[in-house]
Simulated scan of single mutants.
Amino acid sequence: MTKTIEDLRYQLEEWLAQGFTSPEDRANYQALKEQYEDETLDYSFSKQEIVGQLEVIITSRENDFPDLDEVTRDGYLELVSQLEELDEDTANYYRKQLG
């Protein structure tokens, strides 16, 4: 039986809320997310993941944001580039956070 779009979205939301307990859980989430995105063209889960990663960089005390070391800065800008493909306005917001 094929899962409905609503079922896919619910399962994705549940996995994000509960977290992943194993690499297999993460892989299953990724596969389901790709299926959902292919069927709906709704990239909100990918956007949410990227924004979450950017927020961790910004709020992590070890990073001294916005004065990031070169490696962290490159990773941050790579995430912003990925986000730009999904939401240009939000990507511009995070790009401006670097100053």
Rank of each mutant, 00 (worst) to 15 (best):
L79F: 09
D87K: 08
G19H: 01
Y94T: 00
I58L: 12
Q82C: 09
D69W: 00
L86V: 07
E70T: 10
Q97R: 14
E62M: 14
L41S: 04
W15D: 14
Y10R: 15
Y10Q: 08
E55L: 14
L77F: 03
F45E: 04
Y76H: 09
T90C: 11
Y76P: 15
K47N: 10
I57W: 04
S81K: 12
I50H: 03
D74Y: 14
E55P: 06
W15R: 15
P66Q: 05
E84F: 05
S60G: 15
D74K: 15
N63K: 03
V56I: 13
N63M: 03
Y29W: 12
G52W: 02
Q30V: 11
E55G: 08
V80W: 04
P23K: 15
S22F: 00
Y29F: 09
E88I: 09
D74I: 11
E6N: 09
L83E: 04
E37W: 00
L86T: 06
T72K: 13
S81M: 07
L41C: 11
V71L: 12
L98R: 02
E13R: 02
G75R: 13
F20W: 01
Y93D: 06
I5K: 15
T4W: 03
E37G: 02
G99C: 07
L68D: 01
G19P: 01
I50W: 09
A31I: 00
E49C: 07
T72N: 08
S44C: 08
T4K: 05
T2A: 07
A27V: 08
L16M: 12
W15Y: 14
L54V: 05
E78Y: 05
V71T: 07
L54A: 05
R9Q: 11
K47D: 03
Q48I: 00
D64A: 13
L41F: 07
G75V: 08
G52S: 10
R61A: 15
D38R: 04
E6R: 13
T40C: 05
L32E: 02
F20T: 09
F45K: 01
E84T: 11
E13K: 14
Y93F: 13
N92H: 01
E85V: 11
L98A: 01
I5C: 06
R95V: 04
Y29G: 12
R61P: 14
Y29E: 08
E14P: 04
F45P: 06
W15Q: 13
A17V: 05
L68A: 04
K3D: 10
D87M: 06
Q18R: 12
K96N: 15
D42E: 02
E62G: 13
E84V: 00
Y76D: 02
G99E: 06
R9M: 05
E78I: 07
T40F: 00
I58Y: 04
D64Q: 13
E55V: 12
Y93A: 07
N92V: 03
G75F: 13
S44A: 04
T2W: 10
R95Y: 03
T4S: 05
I5T: 08
L41H: 12
L12W: 01
F65D: 11
Q82H: 07
D89A: 10
I50N: 06
T59F: 12
V51D: 01
L8Y: 09
T4Y: 01
L77V: 15
N28M: 05
Q82M: 10
T2G: 12
